[in-house]
Design a protein around this nucleic acid. Sequence first.
DNA 1: TAAAATTGTTAGATAAGTCTAAATATTATG
DNA 2: CATAATATTTAGACTTATCTAACAATTTTA
Lengths: 219, 219
Amino acid sequence: MKNSFTEENYLKAIYKLSERDELVTTTDIATMLDIRAATVTDMLKKLAVKKLIRYERYKGLSLTEKGRAIGVKIIRKHRLWELFLVQKMKFRWDEVHEIAEQLEHIQSDELINRLDEMLGFPKADPHGDPIPDKNGVFGKTRTIPLSQVKPKVVSVVAGVIENSNTFLQYLDKIGIAIGDKITIHAIEAYDQSHRISVNQGKEVFISESVAKNILVVGK
Amino acid sequence: MKNSFTEENYLKAIYKLSERDELVTTTDIATMLDIRAATVTDMLKKLAVKKLIRYERYKGLSLTEKGRAIGVKIIRKHRLWELFLVQKMKFRWDEVHEIAEQLEHIQSDELINRLDEMLGFPKADPHGDPIPDKNGVFGKTRTIPLSQVKPKVVSVVAGVIENSNTFLQYLDKIGIAIGDKITIHAIEAYDQSHRISVNQGKEVFISESVAKNILVVGK
DNA sequence: TAAAATTGTTAGATAAGTCTAAATATTATG
DNA sequence: CATAATATTTAGACTTATCTAACAATTTTA
């Protein structure tokens, strides 16, 4: 058990890529981790030896159960820490990612389970991304972009698609956060911009692209 | 800024050793970190290049201001995290060291300062060790071993000297924790064992060596 | 104070994780 | 379908942190 950070980061990246596509490629991983493909190839061999992935030269790879479990666990820890930072330490949701990148590698099942409990066994992190339970199982709350909600229907913000700091800060500025109730009053025909209100408050305008990037709980 | 863990651990160890003796030796560090002296020598050269220590071959070393600042900061983080784990996450004081060894390397001044605030700017960790403030300054609460307190005087537990898990668990078992008020009722002449009460409660016996290892606030 | 013991350093090796450059598969295209 | 483009792997090198073995300096002690 040496510096398990690197290995954990690979497995997390591979898990995330697996969500889109079962078969993951060397280049995808290299891109996500911002390292060279040659480096990835080396690591893949090591992960395969440890039975964390199934890997065949030139053929892509997939996670084994063991590998998946580690990947999911890192994601669980990352998201619980993010929520902790926002709810208990009063950070804004656009400030927590980097710190959680570090905290996700802390080894202590006991700690992470107590954190889970302290936060009330939450289902989603401050960005709306789902948090798996201690067995690695994701509850399945369906979310849809705000842009697909009909006018006059009240919906609840569950997360975002675009996850950049600038976008999150923008939402912060116009006063939209997870859990807020949004009502669409009208959609401008010429540019599809939305006139909405947040928690029955005063109305604000958001562009179509913003509406597409806000996730709300679907029915 | 690569894997700063190792460097931080050296500086923390050197700082702790400096507290006893300004001039620190290669072997002391090797012993504390449980690595070979040859390895330490290599690292000392690197730390000297970075101006974190003053080092001369065969002559021992001392921390520069820069090096001291890092060492103290790691200690501050370690102790704040320990207190957090005990006070907020309900761990026992003998369970927190290992987790804090990991958490002390999390890089975020903002986080550590908020933790400090959340805990009420504490002066000592769950073992009674002093916590430096954000400028690296230690408040100076004088502590003395319980064995030096006179009978009938009420004193407050501030920490321990011996820091082993077995000792901490023993204290836990007989019901002694930081902040408890202890009164010595009598000291047996033949073996110096102490008959004491905790928080005005029922009396317990502790051996002389235990009394020597409990620190109380001195006047 | 000279020999013995201890402490510290140097030299050379290893493992992890990364790189670049070159070679080889696979996939796409004219 | 042959070749060009792209993706992947191999080979060789570097850095960090560690080790062991051998050597050197310092300290202790007889």
